[in-house]
């Protein structure tokens, strides 16, 4: 029984969330905060894979998010909505229920390919150079989007709301919260499985000592490529969900500022700690919402809290440990195969 505890808890949580959203017991405001929380969890855990576990420094996460957002938006609108540029819907809108998760995954795959393009030249170098290359990649993505007029250029692209509405019309359920929940859990699960697999152990090995890892038969180049693609692919998934929640994408939403926000979440949670990244993404989102009444002072308080944290706990909330390391009794309640 113990082996399925976590799965059961998650399934129950999903059911409760769907019920609460359907009956409008939790309002749309709370729901939107929860959804952005999920997206932040995906973003911070996926960046942690590169910046934390692998010890590289990538700061163009928002660029990959933009790729995922735009690819899935254009695809979704082309297939299921009427648009001035792409003409009438290619498929019956009621099919959107089945195709939507595929669209999100395709957004992720496109972002992973973009990640590969960046990874090939950049992993010949180390450290600071990767930071510069990823910043450049972020700018390139934004400039490309700005210069393609068919997808709205700097004006942005919209029409995704009609896809979401079409899903709701076919079967009346709160689809967006459900999918955000599922993809959040899925991406945390994938990263966990990857890191704890025999193959994936090469990632922390590179972090410890690249030469030693190479000698111990880790194909470091391939390892880096796979980790980077996984990380950017999940960022693409987050971007796709982001686009469908907002119903509107604009290159201005994916600038270096967004990348920095994700970096803050990673270092707040602790490098190389998955549960730390999840916790910090949740905390960060909640904190920004809870401190709203402070208005402008908020941007004094939040950075001040960060400084305090870095002063007294420079390794982040969790350091490089996981939740059960702090609360060993948690282990009694679940078990994984690894």
């Amino acid at each position: 029984m113990k082996r399925y505890n976590v799965q059961i808890i998650l399934a129950v949580a999903l059911a409760i969330l769907a019920y609460l959203a359907q009956e409008e017991i939790i309002g749309k405001y709370a729901l939107s905060v929860l959804m952005f929380m999920g997206i932040n969890v995906i973003l911070s855990t996926s960046l942690n894979l590169v910046n934390g576990y692998m010890g590289e420094f990538s700061c163009g996460h928002a660029g990959f998010m933009a790729v995922g957002a735009y690819v899935s938006s254009v695809l979704g609108v082309m297939l299921f909505a009427k648009d001035k540029v792409f003409g009438p819907a290619l498929l019956d809108p009621s099919l959107s229920i089945w195709v939507f998760p595929l669209i999100v995954i395709i957004g992720g795959i496109a972002a992973a390919l973009a990640g590969l393009l960046v990874a090939i030249p950049s992993f010949k170098t180390r450290g600071d150079y990767l930071a510069i290359i990823t910043i450049a990649a972020n700018y390139i993505v934004i400039s490309v989007v700005e210069n393609i007029d068919t997808i709205g250029g700097a004006r942005g692209f919209m029409g995704m709301k009609s896809v979401v509405k079409a899903m709701g019309k076919t079967i009346d359920m709160p689809w967006m919260p459900i999918w955000v929940f599922i993809f959040t859990i899925l991406s945390v699960w994938i990263i966990r499985r990857f890191i704890s697999s025999t193959f994936g152990k090469g990632v922390p090995a590179i972090n410890q000592d690249e030469i030693a890892a190479e000698i111990m038969s880790v194909n470091t180049n391939k390892m880096k490529m796979v980790a980077f693609m996984l990380s950017s692919g999940l960022a693409g998934v987050a971007g796709a969900l982001f686009a469908y929640i907002l119903g509107y994408v604009n290159p201005g939403s994916f600038t270096i500022l967004k990348s920095t926000e994700v970096l803050v979440m990673v270092y707040l949670g602790g490098m190389g700690s998955l549960s730390g990244s999840v916790l910090s993404a949740i905390l960060f989102t909640l904190l920004l919402e809870a401190l709203r009444p402070l208005q402008i002072i908020k941007w004094v308080v939040v950075p001040f809290l960060l400084i305090l944290l870095m002063q007294f706990r420079p390794e982040g909330i969790m350091g490089n440990r996981e939740l059960p390391d702090f609360f060993p009794r948690l282990k009694r309640f679940y078990a994984f195969k690894d």
């Binding site: 309002g27 749309k28 405001y29 939107s32 905060v33 952005f36 982001f242 929640i245 907002l246 509107y248 604009n250 201005g252 939403s253 919402e289 709203r292 208005q295 402008i296 908020k298």
Partner: peptide
């Protein structure tokens, strides 16, 4: 009621929902 939307698109959406709903 003045709410700060941080000049970000996602924040403008949550701000709008907060004003409308809460």
């Amino acid at each position: 009621i003045y709410e700060d939307n941080e000049a970000k698109a996602e924040s403008a959406v949550t701000t709008a929902l907060k004003l409308i709903e809460k």
